[in-house]
Amino acid sequence: MPLNQSMNVFDRSTKLAQRDRAAKAINFSDYDYLREEVADRIADRSFDIKRFFPVAVDLGCGRGYIGKYLDKEVIGTLVQCDHSKESLKIAQMRAASFEVPAISVIADEEFIPFPDHSVDLLFSSLSLHWVNDLPGTFAQAIKYIIIDNDGAFIGAMFGGDTLYELRCSLQLAEIERKGGFAPRVSPFADVRDVGNLLTRAGYTLTTIDLDDIIVNYPSMFELLDDLKGMGESNAAWSRTNILHRDTMMAAASIYKAMYGNDDGSVPATFRVISWIAWKPDKSQTQPAERGSATISMKDLSASDSRKGS
Score class of each variant (00 low, 15 high):
residue 2 P to E: 09
residue 5 Q to E: 14
residue 7 M to R: 11
residue 8 N to V: 12
residue 8 N to M: 13
residue 9 V to M: 09
residue 9 V to G: 02
residue 10 F to C: 04
residue 15 K to G: 11
residue 18 Q to G: 04
residue 20 D to K: 07
residue 28 F to D: 02
residue 31 Y to N: 09
residue 34 L to D: 09
residue 35 R to I: 01
residue 37 E to A: 14
residue 43 A to D: 02
residue 45 R to Y: 09
residue 46 S to C: 15
residue 47 F to G: 07
residue 48 D to Q: 14
residue 49 I to N: 00
residue 50 K to G: 11
residue 51 R to F: 06
residue 52 F to K: 11
residue 52 F to M: 09
residue 59 L to I: 12
residue 63 R to S: 14
residue 63 R to A: 12
residue 65 Y to H: 15
residue 67 G to V: 05
residue 69 Y to S: 09
residue 71 D to W: 06
residue 73 E to Q: 12
residue 77 T to R: 10
residue 81 C to H: 00
residue 84 S to M: 05
residue 85 K to N: 12
residue 87 S to E: 07
residue 89 K to M: 10
residue 90 I to D: 00
residue 91 A to N: 01
residue 91 A to I: 04
residue 91 A to W: 01
residue 91 A to G: 03
residue 92 Q to L: 05
residue 94 R to S: 10
residue 96 A to K: 14
residue 96 A to H: 12
residue 97 S to I: 08
residue 101 P to Q: 04
residue 102 A to D: 01
residue 103 I to D: 09
residue 104 S to N: 08
residue 108 D to I: 03
residue 111 F to K: 12
residue 114 F to T: 02
residue 115 P to K: 10
residue 116 D to Q: 14
residue 116 D to W: 08
residue 117 H to G: 13
residue 118 S to F: 03
residue 118 S to R: 00
residue 127 S to Y: 05
residue 130 W to F: 15
residue 137 T to K: 02
residue 138 F to M: 10
residue 138 F to K: 00
residue 139 A to L: 13
residue 140 Q to Y: 07
residue 143 K to H: 12
residue 151 G to Y: 00
residue 151 G to D: 00
residue 152 A to V: 10
residue 154 I to F: 07
residue 156 A to H: 00
residue 157 M to N: 01
residue 160 G to K: 02
residue 160 G to Y: 02
residue 165 E to N: 04
residue 165 E to S: 07
residue 166 L to I: 07
residue 166 L to P: 00
residue 168 C to W: 04
residue 169 S to D: 08
residue 171 Q to A: 09
residue 177 R to K: 15
residue 178 K to C: 10
residue 183 P to N: 04
residue 185 V to R: 01
residue 189 A to G: 03
residue 190 D to I: 04
residue 191 V to W: 03
residue 192 R to F: 13
residue 193 D to W: 14
residue 193 D to P: 04
residue 194 V to L: 08
residue 200 R to G: 00
residue 200 R to W: 05
residue 201 A to T: 06
residue 201 A to K: 01
residue 203 Y to N: 01
residue 204 T to M: 00
residue 204 T to R: 07
residue 206 T to G: 07
residue 207 T to D: 14
residue 207 T to C: 10
residue 208 I to P: 03
residue 208 I to H: 06
residue 211 D to C: 03
residue 213 I to Y: 10
residue 215 V to L: 10
residue 220 M to R: 01
residue 220 M to S: 05
residue 221 F to D: 13
residue 224 L to A: 10
residue 226 D to A: 10
residue 226 D to Y: 00
residue 231 G to S: 07
residue 231 G to F: 03
residue 232 E to N: 05
residue 235 A to C: 15
residue 235 A to P: 00
residue 237 W to R: 14
residue 238 S to F: 05
residue 238 S to D: 12
residue 242 I to V: 14
residue 243 L to W: 08
residue 248 M to H: 04
residue 250 A to L: 15
residue 250 A to E: 12
residue 250 A to Y: 05
residue 251 A to H: 06
residue 253 S to C: 09
residue 255 Y to E: 04
residue 255 Y to R: 02
residue 256 K to P: 06
residue 256 K to T: 14
residue 259 Y to G: 02
residue 260 G to N: 11
residue 260 G to K: 03
residue 262 D to V: 13
residue 264 G to R: 00
residue 265 S to I: 07
residue 271 R to W: 02
residue 279 K to A: 06
residue 280 P to H: 01
residue 285 T to L: 15
residue 287 P to I: 05
residue 291 G to F: 10
residue 291 G to H: 11
residue 291 G to Y: 09
residue 292 S to R: 11
residue 293 A to S: 15
residue 301 S to D: 13
residue 302 A to M: 11
residue 306 R to K: 14
residue 308 G to K: 15
